[in-house]
Simulated scan of single mutants.
Amino acid sequence: MASEITPIVMGGAAWSHQLNHDAETRPVIPVILNAFDHGIRTIDTSPYYEPSEKILGKALADPQISSLYKREDYFLMTKVGRIASEEFNYSPSWIRESVERSLQRFRTGYLDVVFCHDVEFISDAGVVEAVRTLWEFVEQGKIRYVGISGYPIDKLVRVARLCKEKLGRPLDIVQNWGQLTLQNTKLRTEGLRQLGEAGVKMVCSSSPLNIGLLRAQGVPIGRLGDWHPAPSDLRLAVSKAADLVAEKGDDLASLALRFAVRETARKEKGLPAMALIMGPGSVAEVESCAAAAKSVRDQNTQGKFGDLRDDTVLDKEGVQSDEPLVQGVREILGRWIDFSFESPPKGWDVEAGKMGKVE
């Protein structure tokens, strides 16, 4: 599987109302074509990112794309379980309905990966049973690989261990967000080895900008308003860091992307392979992501494809060049280094899958 997922993945949240008011009117076909041309041939989305699956599925079936790329030329990842901000359904019946709906939306006979989405919001036992249901689709040939996604690393590790113990087979893949970034590297320091010990072969790190926090213009505001979990003092520290980077003739988002690409590409013996999920919503953003990914590569190393499908061999001079600015940003962030958000929020009942009663 590690050889099938491209090192850089196109995230589908850019086509959601959570992040963008104009999700339906964004030029999705040029974005996909540009991403594929750069070698970004893996797409990750979710029904929760409404209407992302519908938009991407329609675009992939358009002759502008389908005439150039066959289904086996790209890798599709989606999710089940999360329906809305405070609505989850991990029942076997809903898991089955959700998978079949995704197959229809993408007009395909199979999905490469299906994740249980944001597993911290339900019980460990509930996740294990959902994974069991997804294995049924693997046996039917409708899903190739099964995984879980979520934020708290301890939950991901615990559930991965339980799946191996209770189901007799390890998870194929795990996705975590916002914790292999310029601000927070806990996925590497606290999770990667443990996930590998639980049998996980592939780990995807999403949101290298920490859902839009690590950029000069601040957090994104979509139809849900300002939902970003970053406290005001962290936002202020990021703003100061962005000013420092600008003074040095660089851009915080670009620096953060380069940092995340390097961290994801850094291989350690015995640890799971990694891929980085970025979320470009325009051709310009694809170009920015591709430029950041290519800028950290050793230009003297030619891979099999000559694009972002190839493993990244890091440019050591580039690493050294960025290091003073990376350290300057991290000094400004100070106490916010490795700060993790609270997920689920206080009062959430994981057994019921909803907010508990306020006493």
Rank of each mutant, 00 (worst) to 15 (best):
G126E: 05
F36C: 09
V157G: 03
A253R: 13
T185K: 13
E4S: 14
H17N: 12
Q64M: 04
N89H: 02
P280T: 12
D349T: 04
F88G: 04
K267P: 00
V326K: 03
A246F: 06
A290S: 08
E120N: 07
I83D: 02
L314F: 05
E317C: 01
D250G: 01
P231K: 10
A273P: 00
W177H: 12
E165V: 09
S91H: 11
P272Y: 07
A275P: 02
I65Q: 01
E331T: 10
L180Y: 04
I211M: 15
I55E: 09
N176Y: 05
Y110K: 12
L19P: 00
D22L: 05
S85P: 00
V350F: 06
M278V: 14
D251N: 13
F339V: 06
A256L: 11
V159H: 01
T181R: 03
Q64A: 15
Q18M: 09
S16Y: 08
V245H: 07
F88E: 01
V146N: 05
K354P: 00
P7H: 08
V99Q: 05
R235T: 06
H117K: 04
V138I: 06
D322T: 10
E50L: 08
K354R: 15
R96A: 13
L162S: 09
C289Y: 10
D233H: 11
V138H: 06
W348M: 06
E136L: 06
E285D: 07
S282T: 15
Q194E: 15
L192Q: 10
A265I: 07
E24P: 00
V286S: 12
L244N: 04
G306N: 12
I221N: 04
H38K: 13
E165M: 12
K346P: 11
G249S: 07
D44Q: 05
S3M: 03
G225S: 10
A230G: 10
V159T: 05
K164E: 11
T45Q: 06
D37N: 10
L187C: 14
E247P: 00
A84C: 00
G353S: 04
E323H: 08
I173M: 08
D226I: 09
H117P: 03
I32V: 14
W135C: 02
R132C: 01
P208W: 10
V114I: 14
E351S: 12
R105G: 01
R132W: 02
V358M: 12
G109N: 09
V319M: 13
K54S: 14
R82I: 13
S149P: 06
M1K: 00
Q175R: 07
F36D: 08
G306T: 12
L252K: 11
N89L: 03
T25G: 04
Y145T: 01
T6I: 07
S282P: 04
K267A: 13
I211E: 15
Q179P: 00
Q302F: 09
I40M: 15
E87M: 03
R105Q: 11
S321R: 15
G147R: 00
V113K: 04
L33I: 02
D310C: 03
N176A: 15
K304E: 12
K240T: 07
G356Q: 08
L236R: 15
F115G: 05
L180V: 10
M77L: 12
L214Q: 09
V350D: 09
D243A: 15
G178M: 12
D172L: 00
A160S: 15
R309V: 00
I43N: 02
A23L: 12
K70T: 13
H21S: 08
E247G: 14
L180S: 10
